[in-house]
Amino acid sequence: MMGTGKSTVGDLLAMELGYRLIDLDAAVVEKVGMTIPEIFERHGEPHFRELENETLRQVLDSGEGVIVATGGGAVLRPDNCELMLQGGLVVALTADAEHIIARVQGDRNRPLLAGNAEERVRALLEVRRDAYRFAHCTVDTSGLAAEEVMRAILAHYRV
């Protein structure tokens, strides 16, 4: 889910493990030369989700040691979930609505929050309640520092 710390924690993990962090949303933007809001506006969410799938497949097929921070909606496609599971350890970062709202409120680069951000976050949490269950492990980032989240993930990774 957005606002759970994927990019921040991903940076820390990449440095700790000597891997490269790939932010999937940023990779899509670079690939098509449009911002995510522009993609949504011009082509719609289904087109964005197709680009997201293509980019995820390319990143995971590269064979490099990478940390991939996916957008929160990448799990809406079962084939993305399968790709992630085949690619390595899948970690779902979660947070309660209040923490997510505080982290994302005012971010204009999130087209799914158009309108009342608080209402939209709560609705997305409800719709996606079970979407992250496929992950190997889940870490609730509510009230945790990024370093604490990283240590929790490393405990699963190094098992």
Results as ranks from 00 to 15, higher is better:
Met1Gln: 11
Met1Ser: 14
Met1Asn: 07
Met2Phe: 09
Met2Thr: 14
Ser7Pro: 00
Thr8Phe: 07
Thr8Ala: 13
Val9Pro: 00
Asp11Cys: 15
Glu16Tyr: 05
Gly18Glu: 02
Tyr19Ala: 13
Leu21Lys: 14
Ile22Glu: 05
Leu24Arg: 01
Leu24Met: 10
Ala26Met: 09
Gly33Ala: 08
Met34Pro: 01
Ile36Thr: 01
Glu41Asp: 13
Glu41Thr: 10
Glu41Pro: 02
Arg42Gln: 08
His43Arg: 10
His43Glu: 09
Pro46Tyr: 03
His47Asp: 07
Phe48Gln: 02
Glu50Thr: 08
Glu52Asn: 05
Glu52Tyr: 04
Asn53Asp: 15
Asn53Lys: 12
Glu54Ile: 05
Glu54Ser: 11
Thr55Glu: 10
Arg57Phe: 10
Leu60His: 04
Asp61Gln: 14
Asp61Asn: 14
Ser62Met: 08
Ser62Gln: 06
Glu64Val: 02
Glu64Ser: 09
Val66Phe: 07
Ile67Asn: 02
Ile67Ser: 00
Val68Glu: 02
Thr70Phe: 00
Gly71Val: 04
Ala74Thr: 04
Leu76Ala: 14
Arg77Met: 14
Pro78Trp: 01
Asn80Ala: 11
Cys81Met: 15
Glu82Asp: 15
Met84Leu: 15
Leu85Ala: 15
Gln86Leu: 12
Gly88Lys: 12
Val90Ile: 09
Val91Tyr: 02
Ala92Pro: 04
Ala92His: 03
Leu93Val: 10
Ala95Phe: 05
Ala95Ser: 15
Asp96Gly: 13
Glu98His: 12
His99Ser: 15
Ala102Leu: 10
Ala102Ile: 05
Arg103Pro: 05
Arg103Ser: 11
Val104His: 01
Val104Phe: 03
Val104Ile: 09
Asp107Ala: 08
Arg108Gln: 14
Asn109Ala: 13
Arg110Gly: 03
Arg110Val: 01
Pro111Tyr: 13
Leu113Phe: 14
Leu113Trp: 06
Glu119Trp: 03
Arg120Asn: 13
Arg120Leu: 10
Glu126Gly: 13
Val127Met: 09
Val127Glu: 13
Val127Pro: 04
Val127Thr: 12
Arg128Lys: 12
Arg129Pro: 06
Ala131Asn: 10
Ala131Trp: 03
Tyr132Trp: 06
Arg133Leu: 11
Phe134Lys: 10
Phe134Met: 09
His136Met: 12
Ser142Asn: 07
Val149Ile: 13
Arg151Ile: 07
Ala152Ile: 10
Ile153Glu: 02
Leu154Phe: 05
Ala155Ser: 15
Ala155Cys: 11
His156Leu: 06
Arg158Ser: 09
